[in-house]
Design a protein around this nucleic acid. Structure first.
Lengths: 349, 349
DNA sequence: CTGAAAGCGCTTACAG
DNA sequence: CTGAAAGCGCTTACAG
């Protein structure tokens, strides 16, 4: 801990002095308790006092101090948001959804990243708790179900990416299985039979579900699943490129690639490009997530839309409900395949 | 403001009770003042007491309450970070750099987005100030220089994307001009003379600078600047595609495209692809920012690297200095062209 | 319906 | 070097 010279942070509003609840009370001719009650709606107050107080607030430009509020009332009107990373277009949309929705109920989000690392995530949650957040939203948390359930004994928790039932806890999961099934069906409908699957990081639940969806779709059509077509990946672009490399080197026959996320699909397109394999003329590619980047890839990527912004909104609304002691209502939008230009009818014999 | 039933947020640590500074003091046989002094290094304390207190802290697992700290001491150990958006890989890297660096000095960032809207930004700053952050880092702020200077009278401010001198304020700017010049020089070195430039949103300072860099490079080589080659854009993918559309429709002759950012470069590549123009065989493309997405485009994009992560780090360190009353030291890394595969020697006659 | 009082967990002059 | 006391700006039982 660095020692700070006491003179360091000296500057402060020379113009407007900070107005407190006491000043409002005096101006309105009531006690601070009454002002507080009006502010929080925590008791019925006579109409005339309400008016006097509201006028005083407006006139003085009073803004309650959330820090004092947090200390006295135990509520900081802030909710911690643990995301895995801050620089993902995918998670970013969810964060924005949370920000908008929380703002609507006068809560402030505290964003912090876990970097897909359980230990980091623990630390982040400690920071958040030390900051006395009123609740925690964990996006695709790495923590165990039990750890989350324990946490929910301390404060309301909403978690995305899994199904979990517990008091003070809401969970929210996208139907990855159906999404993957749909994408695979689409490729099958185009006549493809040799569809390679680039799997996601098996540490992610959703990666596993997408793989199940792929296998299920094949089975439903009686198309045999070929081990050689199932290539491991880690959700990063590079692993998509590597996967294609491997398919080509092994001389595995394939006319389409379904990647468990767009990033790998984009990587795969790069790999194909390097080997002069044309998409979609020679090989069709379908991704998952519907990232912005896919809209502007060459060719534009057909992909399963993940409603991450909406998911953020839903998560924030669920948190609002939990904070209010209401039952959270969670209805996740269904998967939807966005057809663009990276897949075409199979022309192979 | 919704009325919350008082029973709502009732749950709390049934296991470990929250340990306070008073409990630590008692356990160590000293006064709370002494514990506080040790914690903050705000006075010299005898070695034996320091030891006793440190032991007590460790044994009880004491964690200071930043909320109380903020109220009593006026410092919340948090700094507000206004970003334009939460879902950009570009800004995201900067946010991560800030997060890491702030964490190292025990500060917490409060991220909030301004959505490239001065009004939103104002609101965000109000939220941050209400939360009593100790300082504000504004990334590519939309606020006027004057507004920023005013703000810096209230609390330390660091701003990126412009040069500004004022007390309690540090600014940090990437050399966009040189970066653009370098990229243009590269294309000129490859023999290109008809280089189209897709401009960025003119509301961004950096967009203007990049354009100046482009023009300067041409002039330095005695290559005439052709109005028809200067296409407006807005930094978004779509405008890159539109720009190419326009060039093609107008039958403007060109052998290379330099886009003021990668997103437009990617959009341009899409536009070219649609018209069966091969990159880089027929047209070379160079971007700016060196986004992840460019590494995996087809072909991989040659681009000017923007050190956004490092910029975040520098901004956070400058804030640390300001908070400490030290002069901030700011040395921005120089632009660097990352050569990949989207540009090739000019083959046109 | 409303006020006085106590307290939230710290920090910081003020006196030794 | 160190403690007792006051205070940061609110909220919330406790009494009317």
């Amino acid at each position: 801990m660095t020692r700070r010279s006491p003179s360091a942070v000296q500057l402060r509003s020379p113009g407007e002095p900070i107005v407190t609840i006491g000043m409002v009370a005096r101006a309105a001719g009531v006690s601070p308790s009454t002002v507080s009650r009006i502010l929080n709606g925590s008791a019925v107050v006579s109409a005339d006092k309400v008016q006097a107080v509201e006028q005083a607030i407006a006139r003085l430009g009073y803004v309650p101090n959330p820090v004092a509020r947090g200390l006295a009332g135990g509520r900081t009107l802030s909710v911690g948001v643990v995301t895995q990373t801050l620089d993902s277009p995918f998670y970013g949309a969810a964060l924005r959804g949370i920000e908008v929705e929380l703002q609507a109920i006068d809560y402030t989000p505290l964003f912090i990243s876990g970097q897909w690392n359980e230990h980091e995530e623990q630390r982040s949650i400690s920071v958040l708790r030390a900051r006395r957040v009123d609740g925690i939203i964990a996006i695709d948390a790495r923590l165990s179900d039990d750890a989350l359930i324990e946490l929910a004994k301390e404060l309301p928790v909403v978690v995305t990416g899994r199904n979990l039932e517990a008091p003070h806890l809401a969970s929210l999961r996208f139907d990855n299985f159906s999404g993957a099934r749909e994408a695979t069906d689409y490729l099958l409908d185009l006549g493809h039979r040799r569809i390679a699957f680039i799997a996601g990081d098996p540490a992610h639940q959703d990666a596993l579900e997408r793989q199940r969806g792929y296998l299920h779709a094949l089975a439903a059509r009686g198309v045999p699943a070929d081990e050689a077509l199932l290539i491991p990946g880690d959700y990063r672009e590079s692993s998509g490129a590597v996967a294609v490399e491997r398919l080509l080197q092994q001389r595995t026959e394939f006319t389409a690639v379904f990647a468990a996320n767009d990033q790998m699909a984009l990587g795969a397109m790069l790999g194909l490009y390097k080997h002069r394999v044309r998409v979609p003329q020679q090989v069709s590619v379908v991704g998952f997530d519907d990232l912005q980047a896919g809209q502007f890839s060459t060719p534009p990527l057909t992909s399963v839309h993940q409603p991450s912004y909406e998911m953020g909104q839903l998560a924030a609304r669920a948190m609002a409900a939990l904070l209010d002691g209401r039952p959270p209502h969670l209805a996740m939008p269904a998967p939807r395949l966005i057809v663009r230009e990276s897949a075409a009818p199979c022309r192979a014999g």
